[in-house]
C-alpha cells in the first residue's frame, strides 16, 4: 500500500512538473531570450551586412575582443527627434486614455446598473466591436473622414461648409482613432468592477447623508479605482507602442514611437538603434508599470 502511495505521489509530481515546466520553458525561450537579445543588440556596434551588427565577441584578430557600446543609447538620447517621438506617444496615450475614461465610465456605469436582461444585451453590444477587426475599425474612420466622406457630405448638405474640408492625417484624427478602437478595452474592465458593486453600499452612503454626487466621489469612485486602473493600463500601454493608427490616420505633423522603431528597423535597417529604442521603451515604460502593478496588488480590497 505504501509503495502504491509512493508511486502515485511520484506520478503526481511528474504531472506537476510538466504543468509548470512546459509553459515556463516556452516563455523563457520565446519571451525572455528574445528580450535579452534586444538588449544585446542594443549595445552592439552597427555595421553593414547580415546581420547588420558586429558580433558581440570577436575572435578574428587572434585575441578576444568584446564589441560593446553604449553609443546607440547616447545617440538616441542626444537626438531630440527620438525623444520627441517618445513624448508624442506618451502624450497621445495619456490624452486618449483620459478621453476613453471619460466616455467609457458613464457607459460602463449605466450598463452595469441596468436590469439583468437588458444588461446582457448591452454587454453583447459592447463586445461586438471588441471582436470586430481592429484594423477595419481604424479603416472605417478613414472612409468616414475622407474628403468625399459622409461627414463632409452631411456638413455640406446642411450648409455649414461649401467644399469638403480635410479632416484626415493629423494628430487629432489619430486621437479619434485611438479612442474609438481602444474604448472597449476601457469599458469592459470598468464594467467588470462596477457590475460586482454592492448596491447597498450606495444605499448606505445615501442613508448616512451623502447626496448622489458625494456618494459618487466618496464611495463609487474609490471602489471602482481598480477597474479604472485596469482599463487605463489596457489603453495606455499598447497606445504608447501603437503603429497602425498613426500610420493610417496620422499625418506628418507628429511622429510616434512605434513608427520610429518600425522605420529604424525596416527602412534604415539599423537594428542596434531599433533595439536601443525598444530597450529604452521597456526601461522607461514597462518596468515602472510592472512595479506599479506589483504595488497596486496590495491595494486590492477583499470584497466579501
Amino acid at each position: 500500500m505504501s509503495q502504491f502511495i509512493f508511486l502515485m505521489n511520484n506520478f503526481l509530481r511528474k504531472q506537476n512538473f510538466w504543468f509548470v515546466f512546459t509553459p515556463y520553458f516556452w516563455l523563457i525561450l520565446f519571451f525572455f531570450i528574445p528580450l535579452a537579445l534586444i538588449f544585446k543588440i542594443s549595445i552592439s556596434v552597427s555595421e553593414w551586412g547580415m546581420p547588420p551588427y558586429r558580433d558581440f565577441i570577436d575572435f578574428s584578430d587572434g585575441g578576444i575582443k568584446i564589441n560593446s557600446t553604449l553609443s546607440n543609447y547616447a545617440f538616441i538620447f542626444s537626438d531630440s527627434f527620438y525623444l520627441r517621438s517618445f513624448l508624442n506617444s506618451l502624450s497621445l496615450a495619456f490624452t486618449s486614455t483620459l478621453i476613453c475614461l471619460f466616455i467609457g465610465y458613464p457607459i460602463a456605469f449605466y450598463v452595469a446598473k441596468s436590469k439583468e436582461n437588458i444588461r446582457n444585451l448591452l454587454l453583447i453590444l459592447l463586445i461586438i466591436p471588441f471582436w470586430t477587426s481592429f484594423l477595419l475599425r481604424v479603416y472605417a474612420w478613414k472612409v468616414i473622414l475622407q474628403g468625399s466622406g459622409i461627414i463632409n457630405v452631411i456638413l455640406m448638405k446642411l450648409g455649414f461648409i461649401n467644399e469638403p474640408i480635410s479632416m484626415l492625417y493629423n494628430q487629432y484624427t489619430v486621437i479619434l482613432g485611438v479612442v474609438y478602437t481602444y474604448l472597449p478595452f476601457m469599458i469592459l474592465p470598468l464594467y467588470g468592477y462596477l457590475v460586482k458593486f454592492d448596491l447597498n453600499l450606495i444605499n448606505a452612503s445615501n442613508d448616512l447623508g451623502a447626496k448622489p454626487l458625494k456618494t459618487f466621489i466618496r464611495v463609487i469612485l474609490p471602489l471602482s479605482l481598480p477597474g479604472i486602473i485596469a482599463g487605463s493600463m489596457l489603453v495606455f500601454i499598447p497606445v504608447v507602442g501603437e503603429f497602425v493608427i498613426p500610420e493610417l490616420l496620422g499625418g506628418s505633423d507628429k511622429l510616434y514611437f512605434g513608427k520610429i522603431i518600425w522605420d529604424e528597423f525596416f527602412v534604415n535597417r539599423d537594428w542596434p538603434i531599433a533595439s536601443a529604442l525598444a530597450m529604452s521603451g521597456i526601461l522607461i515604460l514597462v518596468i515602472p508599470i510592472i512595479i506599479f502593478q506589483l504595488m497596486f496588488a496590495k491595494y486590492n480590497f477583499k470584497n466579501e
Binding site: A204, S205, D207, L208, T215
Partner: peptide, 16 residues
C-alpha cells in the same frame, strides 16, 4: 440622504 434616520444593513454594507 435628507431623512433624519439611519439604517443598519443586513450584511452591514461597510465601505471596504
Amino acid at each position: 440622504y435628507l431623512r433624519p434616520l439611519n439604517m443598519m444593513f443586513q450584511n452591514y454594507a461597510l465601505f471596504p
